[in-house]
């Protein structure tokens, strides 16, 4: 370590920069860089959630509006690109979460008997968890959300839910069921409870993740940070309530 700095001081700082790959690797291998990526990917995924929720809420307008929206979306040329991007975001977010969590467990290799929080003013109900803060179980909530996502993919993308008729017989032959119909069926099937659990856990995850992302990106200001923290709770609530309302609605229309 000593020699490291000594060498650094000897080499003139102006002689060219590092190669592009090297500085990116330094950034991505550093603890702060990894948190930065977590924050960015998290915020982008939040953006997706907003769009996704807005689209889904069209079910309340009616089958036509919803089907229209779905058809338009599926006919977009760029959809596969967007989906790939989304998948990559999610993959990065999850892979890093696994790595960081493992690092963190190693950093505190022996745990305390009964750790107690010293935070006096808890920002919200969400924080009344073992270590006093939602971040204590970001990994757990994340894992639950991932499990839910798998179910969601099975239902909506792979069309493997045995309780759903993905195709209907019409006079013209067997055609694919309309998105609205699939959705209503899924929400009435045995996987519906997972949608409630999954989206509520998602809310918890967001209530910490949203404001935390700003902190990880270095965006902190005495004027705005308290606002962002409140906004995060509101955002989490809206997203969770919005999505969770769908299976509840589904339950009642059946």
């Amino acid at each position: 370590m000593v020699t490291k700095l000594a060498e650094k001081q000897q080499s003139s700082p102006s002689t060219g920069g590092k190669s592009a790959t090297k500085w990116i690797m330094t950034l991505l291998s550093s603890s702060i860089g990894q948190k930065f990526v977590m924050g960015i990917t998290g915020l982008l995924l939040c953006g997706f959630l907003v769009v996704h929720l807005a689209g889904n809420l069209l079910v309340y307008v009616g089958a036509e509006a919803y089907n229209g929206y779905a058809d338009k979306l599926h006919s977009m040329m760029l959809l596969p690109v967007a989906e790939t991007g989304l998948f990559l975001l999610l993959f990065a977010h999850i892979a890093l979460a696994i790595k960081l969590t493992r690092d963190n467990q190693q950093a505190r290799h022996i745990s305390y008997q009964e750790p107690q929080s010293k935070i006096e003013e808890k920002p919200s109900l969400f924080s009344q968890t073992p270590m006093g803060n939602t971040s204590g179980w970001m990994f757990i909530s994340g894992s639950i959300i991932l499990a839910f996502l798998v179910i969601h993919m099975i239902d909506m993308k792979l069309h493997w839910n045995p309780g759903v008729d993905y195709s209907i017989e019409t006079p013209e032959g067997v055609v694919e069921a309309k998105p609205y119909s699939i959705m209503v069926q899924v929400l009435g099937s045995f996987t519906a409870p997972f949608y409630i659990v999954g989206t509520i856990v998602l809310g918890f995850h967001l209530s910490h993740g949203f404001s935390s992302a700003f902190q990880s990106l270095g965006l902190n200001h005495p004027k705005y940070t308290p606002l962002i923290k409140k906004l995060a709770i509101l955002f989490a609530f809206v997203i969770a309530a919005g999505f969770a309302s769908l299976p509840i609605w589904g339950f009642f229309i059946h």
Binding site: M1, S30, S31, K35, L100, N133, S216
Partner: peptide, 20 residues
């Protein structure tokens, strides 16, 4: 930061227990 990472400290998850 490089030295901090090298020493084996964990990452910040914005729990804010440190501040408290």
């Amino acid at each position: 930061v490089a030295q901090m990472d090298l020493e084996g400290f964990g990452n910040c998850t914005n729990t804010e227990e440190c501040q408290a």
